[in-house]
């Protein structure tokens, strides 16, 4: 009868090689997509002022669910001209009439503004990026379409890492704020509304631990 649960099996050639010399862990680089919000070991990304030997470990964006309000608003704004037309025709109300020569550019301009609203929100989300490298944390903020704010905090300067998940939606969709406190200034460096804040805080804590040891 064959012995199924024996632990005295002979080592395979692969195991012998592993025992002979420790192999460096293979880093599996992940592909970055248009809607990627959390990516460990991203492939093909770099930033200005990155050191030659600096490796990006974590790529973060706001969770995609945070885009729902502006997507809903865009759809609602798209229906407003129909709604106004419906109200005016159903009540037979007319303040003044616009010729087609004027109403066509007016309606086109309105929809261009709606498209611009959606596009500017998408761009704002797309370029609000958080990066964690093996040397520092980098937070790139693109606020109000006019301000570009790039903040960095090197790992030895980080005092502690904490994350907060406040409210029903943040708990439901697993996103929250990761706050990194800096030793010298006491300022808080924040990755806001990022997905899987537990993992993000864990990765940063591990990197701080590696720096200390």
């Amino acid at each position: 009868m064959p012995d199924l649960f024996s632990d005295t099996q002979p080592a395979t050639p692969t195991q012998q090689v592993q025992n002979a010399a420790p192999v460096a862990p293979q880093i599996n680089l992940q592909r970055l997509g248009l809607f990627t919000t959390f990516c460990k070991n991203p492939r093909g990304i770099s930033f200005a002022e990155q050191y030659d030997n600096e490796t990006i470990i974590l790529f973060l964006r706001r969770d995609f669910i945070t885009n729902v309000p502006w997507i809903v608003a865009t759809i609602a704004l798209g229906y407003i001209p129909y709604l106004i037309r419906f109200i005016f025709t159903s009540t037979n109300f007319s303040l003044f009439t616009l010729p087609d020569m004027l109403s066509v550019p007016l309606i086109s301009f309105y929809y261009i503004i709606v498209l611009g609203f959606a596009f500017s929100n998408l761009v704002s989300w797309y370029y609000n990026i958080g990066l964690v490298t093996d040397k520092r944390g980098v937070d790139i903020d693109f606020n109000d379409l006019s301000t570009i704010d790039v903040a960095t905090a090197s790992l030895p300067d980080i005092k502690d890492v904490e994350y907060t998940q406040a409210g029903f939606f943040q708990s439901l969709f697993d996103y929250g704020d990761v706050n990194v406190r800096i030793v010298a200034s006491g300022e808080v460096f924040s990755f806001s509304k990022v997905p899987r804040p537990t993992d993000v805080a864990g990765v940063i804590s591990q990197l701080i631990g590696d720096q200390l040891s």
Partner: peptide
């Protein structure tokens, strides 16, 4: 709109994202 496109160009010089990321 011109300002927006200029900002996008300047952001692409701050962070270099791969082409596959859109």
């Amino acid at each position: 709109t011109f300002m927006l496109s200029t900002k996008i160009r300047s952001l692409n010089k701050t962070v270099f994202l791969p082409a596959e990321s859109g």
